[in-house]
Amino acid sequence: MAIDATQPYDDSNIFARILRGELPCRKVFEDEHVLAFEDINPLAPTHVLVIPKGAYVSWDDFSARASGAEVVALVRATGQIAREAGLVEDGYRLLANTGLNAGQEVPHLHVHIFAGRPLGPMLAR
């Protein structure tokens, strides 16, 4: 079910629960501002979710309200994860869905890192 990214942050969402330690995750990276973990239902051989630790619903929300340090941390962490996993040479895809039409399912900003096989076109035609 897609969510409306203009709604207020819902602190009962699955990523908020992971951040609070209520649910486990297979952590790939963590720093002051970012947590990254393996997707529990991967869509590619490598499927990592990178999330800010702050309460941001979507990319739009994050870009409007996050501190400069949070924005830099998310971008740098995403690149570092890809480099350390050896994804750069063969390539990888970043995906951040925002809102209903994009199919955002969890109302917490998250960036997917997909890699490990040819991923096909960006959008189904």
Rank of each mutant, 00 (worst) to 15 (best):
H108F: 09
G91C: 13
K27H: 05
L43R: 07
G54N: 08
D11I: 07
R125A: 15
H33E: 12
L94N: 03
P8K: 13
F15M: 02
V57I: 06
A44I: 07
A124V: 12
A115C: 11
R20G: 04
A96L: 13
V111H: 03
R26N: 12
M122R: 15
A82M: 08
A66D: 06
A77D: 06
T98V: 15
V72Y: 13
V111Y: 01
T6H: 07
T78F: 02
R117F: 07
E22S: 05
P52Y: 02
L49H: 04
V48C: 08
V71L: 14
G99I: 00
G116Y: 05
H33P: 03
D90F: 09
M1P: 10
H112A: 05
R76K: 11
P118M: 15
L23T: 04
T78N: 10
A77T: 05
F62V: 09
G68Y: 14
A44Q: 10
Y56I: 00
F37G: 00
R76N: 10
H33Y: 14
V88G: 06
E89R: 06
P24Q: 01
G86M: 12
V48N: 04
L100F: 08
I18W: 03
G120S: 06
A5H: 13
A36E: 01
R76I: 08
P107D: 14
Q104F: 03
F114E: 01
V50W: 02
P118T: 11
W59S: 11
K27S: 08
V28I: 15
N13Y: 02
A69E: 15
R76M: 15
N13M: 05
R20I: 08
L35R: 01
V57G: 02
V88D: 14
V34Q: 00
Q80H: 13
V111I: 12
A85G: 10
V71R: 08
A44S: 14
P8V: 12
D39K: 00
D10N: 14
A96N: 12
P42E: 05
R26C: 10
P42D: 04
P45K: 10
